[in-house]
Design a protein around this nucleic acid. Structure first.
Length: 728
DNA sequence: CTCGATGAGTTTTTT
DNA sequence: ACTCATCGAG
């Protein structure tokens, strides 16, 4: 490949970063400034010009998606597979390393990964055994406590015993939690990183091996690194001037889950020879959008500093819409999207961004009413679904009988008559013996403690697992999964579950078999060949929970939280719910640091828009069952008026004349018809068709039409301008 | 075990 | 207002 092709498509700043001589490098990459391009071209540059073997390059991202994208683009650019380059997420790489060195790190070869749901359940179980009240010790808070400490590199034994009784209990729970994980051979997400860090820190030989091997270390989204990730990168690169990081302090929106924006400053301090390159030319948005974003983010303190600019025009002004209430806001947005798509634009290029997921509902209702397909991001992902986790728990039990959380999940799922009494007895004995639940259960089937019926049922369960394990031995992965899904009785169990839910679950279980087949067909990564396919599949399920929603190809309007929108871009963007208390959120209003993070979130939202941005707020909003009258978001005042243009709905926006009757959809159709408004679901009378109910509405002004279901005449579309409908 | 009543909480999310 | 989880009754 020609080097000019590597360098020519880059602007001067990008070129600086890509072609820099080996040194520590901080690339401050503004939104839409081509940061992935810089990473990809940098790696290609290292390989082609510096003659670095891909074997010597380590590239780290936060999400699997980002890792996949980077790998894909490198392969596309170089036109050959980059298989032996270590490229992945922090967690994925940690996992790979721990598998390689399992024995040295004190883990069983078959260790498995706890996802946060598993972790939550385990904590609750521990609370029960410690006889602590969930009200006083909320499991969520404990989970947060444990993870926060792990992210900082602190184990329970490192914590100085607190004088404060509550804190002391937390420490105790943490200690027990660690013991339980160790005994069961389980590793949570934080543990992956922590254990990897400790291993390298305390073992000079492997550390030196990896330090020598990785001649270049590159990190994406560096502003999202936490303390332990930073420490790990330092271990690998300290004194070698070979750490190349790309990030944007202005897009740091994950402080609440441990990301340390100050790692950017620490990087500069710890790498005194570093170079700093700013990518400020933006290839995404119009001048108005960028200037609004620049002005907003300028309010934050202690920034590394950066101003986005474009060589393109300033574009349309940003539209600001003050909605009457949240319904009106939703209708406005849906209607604008409708108009926009009528102009021939792709629905998938329109996005509605909100602060909290609960806000999606209003928009969904209005989009449905206008017949616009949409897709909501977020929610349960494939490997997080209940039925999938059930099946995975069986599989984990095959691999490791001492996996207590899996044992407990599965012992009576599907129901096989093993009740709480039996399970309690198993737990008590396991506690006494300091053994796993499995071992305790085995003992109970031979002792004379349980009633004979319970003993028999328990024995049958243990035999079932052993039998499945025997049958699965030596089989191909998808056959193993198939065997478990059926042999466990899960399929039959969910077949009995009534309604659509049960059907979906059965389909998902079948899908799991397909997923296993696909997974098995893909060539194993060179470094993980020693691992049993089943263990690899289980790790894959935990580390990459899959997409939340299928059919990303259908042309849909995109609905998502501002957090989920990071890294994406759309022609048309609506940032909605810009009200103090919602965005910025209530919890952030009083705390300057959190308020700055909210401001960065707003900055992220604004910079998603390529051509047209709408900012919306509601003058009244129904929140937690009450009407609230929030002030417009302070962020709106921080955007210079010159970039904004207030919009009004043309025609008249109908307002509720009377309260909605109970049980009706809480929807007004904003039908602009000579000042008269009708609501969806409203009863109306027509001179010749008689009485009916409004089902749908579309169009406005003289074009406004409604669909009415008449009691006698059936369903009809009527032009409001002619139909002379009267409220019934 | 399944159903319905009751009560608490209600930003953001990946791995 | 609404969801989700737990708890008690059948």
């Amino acid at each position: 490949m020609d080097i000019t092709a590597l360098v020519d498509p880059l602007n001067p700043a990008q070129r600086d970063a890509v072609t820099a001589p080996a040194s520590a490098m901080l690339v401050l990459a503004g939104a839409g400034s081509g940061k992935t391009r810089v990473l990809v071209h940098r790696i290609a540059w290292l390989m082609l010009v510096e003659q670095v073997s891909p074997h010597s390059i380590l590239a780290v991202t936060f999400t699997n998606k980002a890792a996949r994208e980077m790998r894909g683009r490198i392969e596309e650019l170089l036109n050959f597979p980059a298989g032996n380059m270590w490229m992945g997420t922090f967690h994925g790489l940690a996992h790979r390393l721990l598998r390689r060195h399992a024995r040295e790190t004190g883990l069983p070869e078959t260790f498995q990964i706890l996802d946060s749901d598993d972790q939550y359940r385990l904590i609750r179980r521990i609370l029960k055994t410690l006889e602590l009240d969930e009200g006083r010790f909320p499991p969520k808070q404990i989970q947060w406590y444990i993870n926060a400490h792990k992210d900082e590199g602190h184990r329970a034994r490192h914590l100085a015993e607190s004088y404060e009784p509550f804190e002391r209990q937390l420490q105790r729970i943490y200690r027990v939690y660690e013991e339980q994980c160790d005994r069961a051979g389980l590793v949570d997400f934080g543990e992956l990183l922590l254990r990897m860090h400790e291993f390298l820190r305390d073992n000079p030989e492997p550390l030196e091996h990896y330090r020598r091997r990785f001649r270049h270390v590159l990190v994406d989204e560096f502003q999202d690194t936490n303390a332990i990730q930073y420490a790990w990168l330092q271990l690998l690169t300290q004194g070698k001037d070979n750490l190349f990081v790309v990030g944007d302090d202005d897009q740091s929106i994950y402080g609440w889950r441990g990301a340390r924006i100050e790692n950017l400053h620490r990087f500069q301090h710890d790498n005194p020879n570093h170079r700093l390159v700013r990518l400020e030319q933006n290839y995404r948005s119009t001048g108005n959008i960028l200037n609004a974003a620049n002005a907003l983010i300028a309010r934050n303190e202690g920034r590394l500093g950066k101003d986005l600019w474009t060589s393109g025009g300033s574009g349309e002004p940003i539209s600001l819409y003050a909605a009457f209430n949240e319904q009106d806001e939703a209708y406005f947005v849906a209607d604008r999207i409708r108009q926009w798509t009528l102009e021939g634009h792709a629905r998938s290029e329109a996005a509605i961004l909100y602060r909290s997921n609960a806000q999606s509902r209003q928009f969904e209702e209005k989009l449905i009413a206008l017949g616009i397909p949409y897709r909501v991001y977020g929610g349960l992902r494939f490997f997080e679904r209940q039925e999938i986790k059930d099946a995975l728990a069986y599989l984990r039990l095959l691999s490791n009988r001492n996996d207590d959380p899996s044992f407990e999940r599965v012992i009576n799922t599907p129901t096989r008559g093993i009740g709480t009494r039996t399970v309690d007895a198993i737990r008590d004995l396991a506690k006494d013996r300091e053994s796993s639940l499995w071992q305790a259960a085995v003992e109970l089937t031979t002792a004379d403690v349980l009633p004979s019926r319970a003993r028999g049922l328990l024995g049958a369960f243990l035999q079932l697992i052993d039998k499945l394990a025997r049958q699965a031995a030596g089989k191909a992965l998808q056959e193993q999964v198939q065997l478990i899904v059926e042999g466990s009785g899960l399929i039959d169990h969910y077949l009995k579950e009534k309604g659509e839910q049960g059907e979906t679950r059965v389909e998902n279980l079948k899908e799991l078999v397909t997923a296993a087949r696909q997974f098995d067909n893909e060539a194993p990564a060179a470094d993980e060949e020693g691992m049993a396919p089943l263990d690899r599949f289980l790790a894959h399920a935990a580390l990459e929970a899959g997409e939340a929603q299928g059919d990303p190809f259908e042309a849909c309007v995109q609905l998502m939280s501002l957090h989920s929108a990071k890294g994406l871009e759309f022609e048309l963007v609506f940032v909605v719910g810009l009200e103090d208390g919602l965005f910025p959120s209530m919890q952030s209003l009083e705390d300057p640091a959190r308020l700055e993070e909210e401001r960065r979130l707003c900055y992220v939202g604004i910079t998603r828009a390529k051509r047209k941005l709408y900012l919306c707020y509601a003058e009244s909003r129904r929140l937690y069952g009450r009407d609230s009258y929030p002030r417009p978001s302070r962020f709106l005042r921080e955007i210079p008026a010159e970039h904004l243009e207030e919009v009004r709905m043309r025609g008249h926006v109908s307002r509720p004349v009377t309260a909605m009757p109970k049980g009706e959809p809480g929807v007004f159709a904003h039908i602009a018809a000579a000042g008269a408004g009708f609501k969806l679901g409203q009863r109306v009378t027509h001179a010749s068709f008689g009485e009916g109910v409004i089902l749908q509405a579309e169009g406005e002004g003289s074009q406004a039409r409604v669909q009415v279901n008449f009691a006698k005449a059936g369903t009809k579309w009527l032009m409001l301008a002619y139909a002379k409908l009267e409220p019934a």
